[in-house]
């Protein structure tokens, strides 16, 4: 029963969504309630409840590390303080004070705009540094394929910047257009389509296996 019930639920949920996909919109509602968005909002509600699991997990792991004074426990203290500093004022209803809740002018909003957002941007900006070091280290013309990849990458990198356009147009004015036509809209598009079709088929096959209970490895079976 421990695996039978989840498999049945998985099958019914999947089958219901497929069935609704083929049903005319006029017939896919009961008493004015559209079934498809309704089912999808159940997913959101269930997801909301599981957030508690996440909070319990993060607090337990970090609290244990602090209690045992594990290496780097200072960072764990910062994590715990940040969790409660963001969560507590956001949970208190804004009717008590405009500092609470998540609206404009609240503590949550201030922390988000002045701490969270710049930190997110900083992490994303680090990509530029990592791309540079990965390219510097890994882009070697070891084989014919790697050479082709290298040349294409250099051409596309040049094509995407004004300075590169000046260089490429200097060789021949049509080169930027040729890159767009043959590399981006030609080779790139064909490869992307191939990968997308293959991955979509793989995902559909996996979904079918999950729905029919053939694939249960994600449940630990």
């Amino acid at each position: 029963m421990r695996t039978t019930l989840p498999v049945i639920i998985a099958f019914l949920s999947g089958f219901a969504m497929i069935f609704l996909f083929f049903l005319s919109p006029e017939y896919s509602s009961i008493n004015g309630v559209e079934l498809e968005p309704e089912i999808l909002s159940w997913v959101t509600i269930v997801g909301g409840f599981t957030l508690l699991l996440g909070v319990v997990s993060i607090v337990r792991v970090n609290y244990t590390a602090v209690k045992r004074r594990k290496e780097g426990w200072g960072y764990k203290v910062a994590t715990l303080v940040s969790i409660f500093a963001m969560a507590v004022p956001a949970i208190i209803p804004s009717s008590m004070s405009s500092l609470f809740g998540t609206g404009p002018g609240s503590i949550y909003d201030w922390l988000f705009n002045n701490l969270d957002a710049p930190m997110m941007s900083t992490m994303f900006a680090m990509l530029a540094f990592y791309i540079a070091s990965a390219a510097f280290r890994a882009f070697r013309a070891r084989t014919a394929e790697a050479t082709l990849l290298l040349i294409t990458a250099v051409i596309v990198m040049l094509w995407r910047i004004p300075m590169g356009e000046i260089v490429l147009s200097g060789i021949h004015e049509n080169i930027p257009n040729l890159i767009n036509t043959y590399i981006m809209n030609g080779a790139n598009m064909a490869v992307q389509r191939g990968i997308i079709i293959g991955a979509a088929l793989g995902a559909a096959a996996m979904a079918l296996r999950i729905m029919l209970g053939i694939e249960r490895t994600y449940m630990g079976k």
């Binding site: 530029a128 791309i131 540079a132 390219a135 510097f136 280290r137 882009f139 070697r140 013309a141 290298l150 990458a153 250099v154 990198m157 040049l158 995407r160 910047i161 004004p162 300075m163 590169g164």
Partner: peptide
Amino acid sequence: GMTAQSLVHLFIIVSVAVGNVIHF
């Protein structure tokens, strides 16, 4: 931002090219 992007792209291209020359 186009100038910064141009310079970083060109730096990457030059470093890849120099890296390959040394590799060979």
